[in-house]
């Protein structure tokens, strides 16, 4: 743990994420407006004492919308990453351990998934499922599956040759027991490292979908949606887009730094090179 805290990336990235999570969780205490309250006389105000991040085209408080929007965006990121992690890790571990036909078939499916740009795959899965928050978990999560699949497959293939696995096998452990008790616990640390990058990717996907106009339907303010709200007025009144985009960027930065730090920590070769 002390070693973890010595890594600058982990400390900075972790702090950013922690602050954003605190802001989002304590949203009601940090805002004095309703995120949906329309106040047309006070629309498109520049940041001032009343509205620290100004108001949008309907006079809604932007700070308030961003803080509540973070709840939706972070929920989407967490759930879609969780979906990707569970399916990706499970299938990847099975694929790496059992190999043979299963490995071949899953490998080709993953090839196909990776032939799509991630955003495009999200888009078409999204239009097929229809837009709702729950469907968003899948449309963002499914394109991330290959990331977990490939890592857990590669890790499993190297772990299964190690002597403790052979020992467990020779003592008569069943295949499932081997996978669940011996392989997966050893794959998980690697998975946790890329989870941070996956979360950043999910936040990016959600906001990009929102920007393109295929985000979560109104009136729920997700970050992507707030950016899209401000986009039409970008040239005359850039504040809405500026602040919501900055929050998205900061969150992604936090996850990226954390991910980089964890990866450096796991891989001693990179660790020495980075210094």
């Amino acid at each position: 743990m002390r070693e973890l805290l010595r890594n600058k990336f982990i400390v900075i990235g972790g702090s950013i994420i922690l602050i954003i999570v605190i802001i989002v969780v304590f949203a009601p205490m940090l805002t004095k407006y309703d995120y949906g309250a329309i106040d047309l006389p006070n629309k498109q105000q520049a940041p001032n004492a009343e509205h620290i991040m100004g108001t949008d085209a309907y006079g809604r408080d932007v700070w308030c919308r961003i803080v509540y929007g973070g709840r939706i965006s972070l929920t989407v990121a967490i759930c879609s990453t969780a979906i990707a992690m569970v399916f990706g890790t499970l299938l990847g571990t099975l694929s790496g351990y059992i190999s043979g036909t299963l490995d071949f078939v899953l490998g080709r499916i993953v090839d196909v998934m990776m032939a799509f740009p991630m955003l495009l795959l999200s888009l078409i899965i999204g239009i097929a499922l229809g837009s709702s928050t729950r469907n968003m978990f899948f449309s963002i999560g499914i394109p991330i599956i290959p990331m977990f699949y490939r890592l857990s497959r590669a890790t499993t293939m190297s772990i299964k040759e190690r002597s403790f696995v052979t020992a467990a096998r020779s003592m008569g452990s069943s295949r499932w027991r081997l996978i669940l008790r011996h392989i997966i616990p050893n794959v998980l640390p690697y998975i946790l490292v890329i989870m941070s990058s996956a979360m950043g990717g999910a936040i990016l996907a959600e906001s990009s979908l929102g920007f393109l106009g295929y985000g979560i339907p109104l009136p729920t303010p997700s970050w992507g949606l707030i950016v899209n709200d401000g986009r039409s007025f970008m040239f005359t009144y850039p504040w809405t887009t500026a602040f919501s985009g900055a929050f998205i960027a900061l969150t992604i930065l936090g996850f990226n730094l954390l991910g980089d730090g964890l990866r450096d920590h796991m891989d001693p070769k990179i660790r020495t090179a980075a210094r």
Partner: peptide, 13 residues
């Protein structure tokens, strides 16, 4: 690091 963290649409705008 900042550049890679900024969404493309944000830089573009």
């Amino acid at each position: 690091t900042l550049g890679t963290s900024l969404p493309t649409f944000y830089i573009g705008l």
